[in-house]
Write a protein that binds this DNA or RNA. Structure first.
Length: 477
RNA sequence: GGCACCUUAGCCAAGAGGUAAGGCAGAGGUCUGCAAAAUCUCCAUCUCCGGUUCGAAUCCGGAAGGUGCCUCCA
């Protein structure tokens, strides 16, 4: 039985979809005013994992993720750069795809954009006005009246009167209550605008998600996801808009991923620790990045540091090394056979994932399996049959396809990782091979003293070598 | 001020009231010309103080430290 932590109830609940095996999931996508950063990547990896596992568990999933392609920051950024806001958002959507594709993330089934749903947004706003939950102001904006919705604050655990007393921002005079938020914003001269019953303007932030999620998934749907920071006000406001407009409960399960910090601090422009996915991928292989994110449970805060990534890189190499050996034996298989150990591994995987998608526990299961494989593959006496080896390979692929790792050819990915390391360490391949060849010559004439000297030379550059039956291989420490 | 969250070995990181998964680093074996890789063995009573319980890292109360949100944020 799959259990999911629901931010609404603040505990793990049995996952029972509204419509049998059909699951609707909406994840707040990015506001495309800039390139995606590694915090976005974490969120996307988490959702990808969840969607993959739901499918793996036999659910038929409709996954919707929006692009918010109109808002204050977008307008500001476009003005700064002196380009049309559409040019800016298109550019960043492209960057988003590039980054997420590199990380091996599946595209959602539906990817609605706010600007393509102005009609739906306007009609939802109108409905809210008609029902008395919203009011237009003299300047042509429309606000949601938070006091009218008695459930306001139920997701974030806040009470209206407490929030009002804690208000620190300037109160706009046209608002009836300082916490009222804009559903529709009157446009200022020169700003992007759409016709509406209240004059020319644009949607407020929040409303696009209510309008688009209910359009594609129905008035009530199963899972709504996003980063922790969206709980308030974004998701709280989405609930208010949707439930008041439809009169029905909105999302059943609220899933929020934990934040990512960089070297212990929140990413921010002022701290100069803002890392885009693009930059991170120059330093580390996408699979390393992905595995790094999966080795911490999605709700736990994760600290991004180069030291942590280096550890992760080692682990990925370890897995693929073993996989290479395994596949050599599996190559002779007639038909994959899943032995007890392989079955046990799959069970551990399911148990961990059923427990609120606990990929960190899966990591432990992976290590236990690989340790076993290394132990057993090394000698003829203990080695599983080729069919069993193929069974292991198959089981690993099964798990890997949910996690999005360990699906590649060992040699291929090892080389890719090496290429990245070479750039990172600023060492040339020829230089390394030259020293290795020198050492080889010394070894041939049994001049071990000089041979060891060559090895030390490499060690100083951060490279260790392994003498194998197939010759000398090298890797970064 | 309000609301959330976090605190597990040198580091990273799971822990569903029943007596601490896993990884890195470290120590010691096996293997090796020597190494490396791989493997084996060893390595924590869970920030603190109370309480509930036969029994708590896990529940309750309090304290300390940290983080996030309350204005844009995955």
């Amino acid at each position: 039985m799959l259990r999911i932590y629901n931010s609404m109830s603040e505990k793990k609940e049995d996952f029972v979809p509204l419509n049998g095996k059909n699951v609707g999931i909406y994840a707040c996508g990015m506001t495309v005013y800039d390139k995606p950063h590694i915090g976005h990547a974490r969120k996307e990896v988490a959702i990808d994992l969840i969607v993959n596992y739901l499918k793996y568990s036999g659910f038929s999933v409709t996954y919707v993720r929006n692009f918010t392609d109109i808002d204050d920051k977008i307008i500001a950024r476009a003005n700064e750069r002196g380009i049309d806001f559409r040019a800016l958002t298109e550019e960043n959507i492209e960057a988003f795809y590039k980054a997420m594709d590199a990380l091996g993330l599946a595209r959602p089934d539906i990817e609605p954009k706010a600007t393509a749903h102005i009609g739906e947004i306007i009609s939802m706003v109108q409905k809210l006005i008609d029902k008395g939950f919203a009011y237009p102001t003299s300047d042509g904006s429309v606000y949601f009246a938070v006091e009218k919705f008695k459930g306001y604050g139920k997701l974030s655990g806040r009470k209206l009167d407490e929030m009002i007393s804690g208000t620190r921002f300037d109160v706009e005079e046209s608002k009836q209550n300082p916490l009222d938020f804009a559903l529709w914003k009157a446009s200022k001269p020169g700003e992007p605008k759409w016709e509406s019953p209240w004059g020319e303007g644009r949607p407020g932030w929040h409303i696009e998600c209510s309008a688009m999620s209910t359009k594609y998934l129905g008035e009530s749907f199963d899972i709504h996801a996003g980063g922790r920071d969206l709980i308030f006000p974004h998701h709280e406001n989405e609930i208010a808009q949707a439930e008041c407009a439809t009169g029905k409960p909105f999302a059943k399960y609220w899933v929020h991923n934990g934040f990512l910090t960089v070297e212990g601090e929140k990413m921010s422009k002022s701290l100069h620790n803002f890392i885009t996915v693009e930059d991170a991928l120059k330093q580390y292989h996408p699979e390393v990045l992905r595995y790094f994110m999966l080795s911490t449970h999605y709700r736990t805060p994760i600290d991004f540091s180069m030291a942590n990534l280096k550890d992760t890189e080692k682990k990925i190499c370890y897995f693929y090394n073993t996989l290479k050996t395994l596949n050599q034996f599996a190559a002779k298989a007639a038909k994959p056979v899943r032995n007890e150990k392989a079955a046990e591994f799959i069970n551990e995987f399911k148990e961990a994932m059923d427990d609120d998608f606990n990929s960190a526990r899966v990591v432990a299961a992976l290590f236990n399996l690989f340790k076993h494989l290394n132990e057993v593959l090394v000698s003829k006496k203990t080695r599983p049959t080729p069919d069993e080896c193929a069974g292991f390979a198959e089981a690993i692929k099964e798990v890997g396809s949910v996690l999005g790792v360990l699906l590649r050819d060992s040699d291929e990915i090892t080389n890719e990782i090496k290429e990245i390391q070479i750039v990172r360490y600023g060492i040339s391949k020829d230089e390394i091979e030259e020293i290795i060849n020198k050492r080889k010559a010394f070894r041939a004439e049994k001049n071990f003293e000089m041979a060891d000297k060559m090895r030390e030379e490499l060690l100083e550059k951060g490279i260790s070598i392994q003498d194998t039956p197939n010759g000398t291989e090298w890797s970064f420490n």
